[in-house]
């Protein structure tokens, strides 16, 4: 399992990559995809939707389980990753390339972990 240093991580196993202070990409971590198993579907929000810190913004389906994906920030969905609709397996194969949404206008963010902190967190 890998945990790139340039990303931040959440306790609910999302990663976030800030482009600048108010713009970021969000996806699920290598640990999350490993725990979930083969992912077959992703429900994404639409461009223009608002996401809210601590609330679900998407969900994924794996082996009959639907799991919500939580947003670590509040902001506006500027872009969604359409390729996940055609190739949901990318979430398993390349979790850090398989971003779900690009969020702009970020107004607040939860306390995030570094790669090192996240690894310690999942080892607990």
């Amino acid at each position: 399992m890998t945990f790139p240093e340039n990303l931040k991580y959440t306790k609910t196993h999302e990663w976030i990559r800030f482009e600048d202070e108010t713009t970021a990409y969000i996806g699920i971590t290598d640990y999350a995809q490993d725990q979930l198993g083969d992912l077959v579907f992703a429900n994404l929000p639409e461009e223009g939707d608002e996401v809210t810190l601590g609330e679900a913004f998407a969900d994924v389906e794996s082996v009959k389980a639907v799991s919500d994906v939580m947003s670590p920030v509040s902001g506006t969905v500027a872009e969604i990753n359409e390729t996940l609709a055609d190739e949901p397996q990318l979430m398993n194969q390349a979790p850090y390339d398989a971003w779900f949404i690009k969020v702009t206008g970020i107004t607040e963010s939860e306390e995030l972990m570094t790669a090192e902190e996240y690894q310690a967190f999942i080892a607990e």
């Binding site: 609910t12 679900a56 969900d59 082996v63 009959k64 389980a65 639907v66 799991s67 919500d68 939580m70």
Partner: peptide, 21 residues
């Protein structure tokens, strides 16, 4: 597997899951 319960190789019970937070 992870989801079915069988009797003599035939399924009588299927399961599914959802979770949020």
């Amino acid at each position: 597997g992870r989801n079915d319960i069988l009797a003599e190789g035939r399924k009588f019970s299927g399961t599914a899951y959802y979770n949020s937070g």
